[in-house]
Structures are given as C-alpha cells and as structure tokens.
Design a binder for these strands. Sequence first.
DNA 1: CTCCCAAGTAGTAATAGTTACTGTTATTAT
DNA 2: ATAATAACAGTAACTATTACTACTTGGGAG
Lengths: 125, 125
Amino acid sequence: MRHSAQRDTILRIVKDAHDHPTADTIYSRVREEIPNISLGTVYRNLKSLSDMGEVDTMETLDKSIHYDGNTVTHRHFICRECSHIIDLFFECKIPEEFHSLGLLVESQKTIYYGLCPDCQRQKAQ
Amino acid sequence: MRHSAQRDTILRIVKDAHDHPTADTIYSRVREEIPNISLGTVYRNLKSLSDMGEVDTMETLDKSIHYDGNTVTHRHFICRECSHIIDLFFECKIPEEFHSLGLLVESQKTIYYGLCPDCQRQKAQ
DNA sequence: CTCCCAAGTAGTAATAGTTACTGTTATTAT
DNA sequence: ATAATAACAGTAACTATTACTACTTGGGAG
C-alpha cells in the first residue's frame, strides 16, 4: 500500500473524532484541510482503513455507516430520542458457549438502544 | 391499524423464515402467494411490523436490512466466509453499569463475527 | 346490507448512501 | 531522473429504501 496525504488526513480526523461520524461528515471535515478532496476518495480510504483494522464501523438504524477511530473493543448505546451515541468500555467477554458450538469469534458489535439521562428527564416532564 | 392480506402474508413469511431474509428476499417469497404485490408494500409493511415490535431488524456489514421473525431477545453470529447467520439464545443481561450511568436500555443488538465450524475446516486444509 | 372514507395498495419516481469508472497526478523502486 | 502503477478528482452508475399518486379495499355508521 502506497502512502497518501489524503489517507493520512482521513485517518487522523477519524481518530480525533469522538462522535462516530458518517462518511459524509468526515468528508466535510477533511475538506477543511484538503478542499478539493473527492467524496469517493473518502469512501475508498475509509473502506481500506476499515479492512486494515485501523478504524471500526457501526451499522445503525439510520442507513449510513458510522466510523469509529477507537479500535479498542467496546460497545455503544444509542438514544432513541436524540440519537446520541455513548461509548461503553465494559468488559466484553466471549461467552463460553461459543466453544461448544465450534464458533470462532474474531470480533463483536453490540448496540444498546434506549433513552439517555437527558431525554429521560424531558420525557418525565 | 386496518387489516390487510398483504401485511398478514408478509408477517407470516417473516415468522416462518429462519434465514434472516432481506426485504428483497421477502418480496420474492411473498410474490409466490401474491404475484402482483408491490415492493413498496413489502418495505412499508416491514417498517410498520418492525415499529409494532412484530419483527426485529439486523443491520449488518452488507448494506441491506435483515429481518427476523423471532422477537425473543437473542444475538447473532455471522461467518465472515459464508455469511451464514446463526441465532444465539445465550442469556443477554444488561450490565449493572447502565444504572450508574443513568442509561435506560430498552433493547440491544449484538452481532459476533468470525468463522463457522465448516469454514474453519476448509481454511485448515 | 350498503355506502362512505380513510387506510392500504400497485406502480413508478425520487432519494441517499455508496461504489465504479476514467483520465490525470503522485509515490516509490530502480 | 524515470518508469510503473497506486491513488486521486470528478463524475456516472448502482442499490437499498422512501415518497408520491391515482386506484382499491376494509370495516364502521346509518
């Protein structure tokens, strides 16, 4: 894989982001540094960065992919009201049962859905 | 909500399916019974059935939504080689930590990725 | 039972997110 | 420095899904 300024910038911006941005959001942030970058370049590099394990992806109820620069295993909570995404660094053990089923687990993605504290308060009023 | 033959059929077919079909797959199955049903009708009803909690959805690495007629809380394993989806009925406890964070969890979706027994064998050869 | 009308439908157009293509640019091995 | 080719910008194409519109149908009121 050849070096490219575009991919460097994309990776840095995803690593710096803590809001699980979509490709389009990443595109507009990268454009502040590289104004004429192509959206296709952003998608292509996000895909290769994801394949290389440099970034993680989240598939949510909205139809766009969210990217996560934090590749440490963790889970997510999404508020059904405000769509805010919260990172959860609880322990993520692979249950014993996988062995007996002969399943080799390489990664896992968990999303919890519900209400965040702020939205619970608003609902209560 | 008014009764409709189309929705009844769609729900029955999703409940009978055990392969987590996409809207398009469901469409072709429903067409065997209602040949002139519209794809839009399938999408619209899958959405309302999902809103009503009659079916569950799965957002996977491929970009289409998979539907699950089994609404008992469970998790999924997807093989990265053959894309086979396996249902897992292990216990799905909500960790204690959510309370201290003030997060109200209403549902959860977990997908494990890895290799199924068959694909592990093929890789070993 | 019949009539009415809103909810539902078929068919089609539109949209959004993503990927593919094409000619040009830039990285890196020689 | 030069050649080979990976990566790029710009644009077209694709796929899954949603929206729209005129027509149909379920089911309650009379």
